[in-house]
Nucleic acid binder design. Sequence first.
DNA 1: CGCGCTGTACATTCTCAGGA
DNA 2: TCCTGAGAATGTACAGCGCG
Length: 289
Amino acid sequence: MDSRDLKIFYTVAKLQSFSRAAAEMDYVQSNITLRIQKLEEELQTKLFERTNRGVRLLPAGELLLSYADNILALMDEAVEAIRPSAEVTIGAPQSLTAALLPKYLLTMKQQHPAISVRIKTLPAAELLTQLKQHRIDLAITNRPYQDPTLKTVHQNKESLYLVSGETACIKQALNLPAVVSSDPECPFRQALLLFIASQQAEPADLIEYDMLEPILYCVEQNSGITVLPEHLVRHPMQKHLLPKDIGEIKIQFVVNVKGARKKSVHSLLACIKSTSNERTDSSVLSQTT
DNA sequence: CGCGCTGTACATTCTCAGGA
DNA sequence: TCCTGAGAATGTACAGCGCG
């Protein structure tokens, strides 16, 4: 059994399919079949039950998976310790990627030039799945989750503001169209729609964009209102306080418990903590140190 | 003799095509 | 969706050769 066999086994076990594992690892499916067969031959036991809808782990497979989890995490740790450069993949929903990540990335690059950071934009649900499968190293999310294999290592409170153009008065601003992300999970969109509903006001219109920049432009041109975190509010925008239950979101930085040993992830987290001007949950942090 | 380059045989790993 | 067989690509080991 070599490390590649173990990776193939691990990927098949996680995705419960030879085909999906092949796609994931850039192999053809028959090669995955062959490698698993060889592994089963070597271990003198079947690891998977083959069905016409994929595969299921057998007890021997479950046992091997627990070892594979530890071995692969250790291998990552070893590579990480020896390589002069490292790569960290951060996953975040589109809205958080656009609105929050840029403020961290510059500091990361300055403080850790040897660490190359990859950003994956993913829907919230997919984010945690990919984190569990070790396809990303760090997830940034505002959604609560319940999964013992994942761990919040840092959290921020981000203050949100209702933002208009030069219109100084909220009442006037509420007559303008709501300009929001087209992503229904976007916390800024949700906050704006909640606020409008709480004011029992009907927005003149709802304008949706896939990207942040057109939203900022619309607001600057006084063609609409939106909700933004404070650091994105720029001249000549006017910011208006929102009620606390709407105007504050909790951003969580989540890692896979098994991947939490990666040194580069810790370096980046330290950098994020130093960049952000937020509260740190020490009880959570103590789990990682 | 030691070293480095080249050619060859064999093993391993992979893809493709077709079938259950 | 998985399995199998054929064949291609790639890697590895080793022998042969020339050179200093």
